[in-house]
Amino acid sequence: MDYLKEPKLIRNSKVAWQEIDDAIVVVTPWNKQIHIISETASMLWRALALPKSEKDLVTLIVQEYEIDEVRAEQDIRTFIKESIEKGIVDIKE
């Protein structure tokens, strides 16, 4: 896939969030739901302040945690799928 054409992901600008005890707590104000982002995934949340592709996020995880790329891809896809379903991450066209 052409890197420049890969969809980019970014935090939904309409959510409120707070870092506390190494975790990140995100609130979606439209439904008052509370979402907890684990210490490991909090790195992805910070990175998504700016648009990132799935590949960018995989590279980030592989470098930080020294895990293999296949495992990292699985984890990132789960994170992305859940985050989009919750409405806390948007796809930037």
Binding site: V15, A16, V27, P29
Partner: peptide, 10 residues
């Protein structure tokens, strides 16, 4: 349901 108010409460 606004972000700013929720952010303040957080």
């Amino acid at each position: 349901q606004e972000k700013d108010s929720s952010q303040f409460i957080l």
